[in-house]
């Protein structure tokens, strides 16, 4: 049973078809990379899988449980099982790094935010947060205001927050797009560790073809709202990947025609 699965997912915005029957499965313990040009539906697919966006047709399964169409507390409970890492980090700049990591547990503790506030949180959670920070190599920054960290460090804090969430799936939406190559590799290394050591199903969307060969166990190419290729444990031919981007303009036009 895969950690995360999309079955024939359809999504349209204002009558414009963005996803037209996407099948995707993300295995536990592996890093699946999602490639696709701007407008290919990549970001929309990511948002649908995280439950931040509703789908029009199809199914989304998280660890054997169907999650599309859930509402209210059921939706919140399913979100808890999927940790999200964002391109813009989305950590809270005005509070400490430590508090940002503790926030990861907000959805699974009683009393929500009150249960994870640094002065009130039980010792068990505080220790766990420190352990998560140590895993991303930022234990010495626990007390710093999060905004004082560099972009790469902020993204590692976001990964520590994801670990704190004790999710089964990690979805990272262009996690390295705002980082320099060095910081980007550190983030990718951490995501691989999360897959291997914690057995999480990791889905990473990327634009950097150079990172695919190094980090992808499975590579999925998305074009015009459809899966263009899906390969496991084998190198994707470079020209095949580049074609996703070269035909961007053509794909856009045909997408609008079919809408």
């Amino acid at each position: 049973m895969p950690g995360l699965e999309a079955r024939s997912v359809h999504k349209r915005f204002d009558g414009r078809v963005v996803l037209q029957g996407v099948d995707l499965s993300v295995d536990r313990g592996l890093v699946t990379i999602l490639l696709g040009a701007n407008g290919s539906g990549k970001s929309t697919l990511i948002r649908c899988l995280t439950g931040l966006e509703r789908i029009d047709a199809g199914e989304v399964w998280v660890a054997g449980e169907r999650t599309d169409g859930l509402r209210g507390s059921d939706l919140r409970r399913s979100r808890r099982r999927v940790a999200v890492v964002f391109q813009q980090f989305n950590i809270i700049g005005n509070v400490s790094v430590f508090q940002n990591v503790l926030n990861g547990a907000m959805g699974r503790v009683p009393f929500g935010v009150l249960g994870v506030l640094a002065p009130l949180a039980p010792g068990r959670l505080r220790e766990k947060a420190m352990y998560c920070l140590a895993r991303v190599g930022l234990a010495d920054r626990a007390d710093h205001p999060a905004r004082t960290l560099s972009g790469g460090q902020q993204q590692r804090v976001a990964i520590a927050r994801a670990l704190m969430q004790e999710a089964e799936v990690v979805i990272a939406d262009e996690p390295v797009a705002s980082l320099d190559p060095e910081a980007g590799r550190a983030v990718m290394d951490l995501l691989v560790t999360v897959a291997r050591e914690d057995g999480m199903a990791v889905l990473v969307s990327l634009h950097q073809l150079g990172l695919v060969e190094q980090y992808g166990d499975r590579t999925v190419g998305l074009k015009a709202g459809r899966v263009d290729f899906d390969t496991r444990f084998e190198a994707v031919p470079r020209d095949r990947m580049e074609a996703l981007y070269l035909e961007d303009a053509v794909a856009q036009t045909s997408l609008e025609d079919s809408a």
């Binding site: 995280t50 439950g51 931040l52 919140r76 409970r77 399913s78 979100r79 808890r80 099982r81 999927v82 940790a83 999200v84 964002f86 813009q88 980090f89 989305n90 950590i91 809270i92 926030n103 990861g104 547990a105 907000m106 959805g107 699974r108 929500g112 935010v113 009150l114 994870v116 976001a158 927050r161 969430q165």
Partner: peptide
């Protein structure tokens, strides 16, 4: 963004407001 990040941990509305 930050509110969305907290919502994606499964936190409730009030927690998101107070936390982010």
């Amino acid at each position: 963004g930050p509110s969305e990040a907290l919502a994606s941990t499964g936190a409730g509305r009030l927690s998101v407001v107070m936390g982010a």
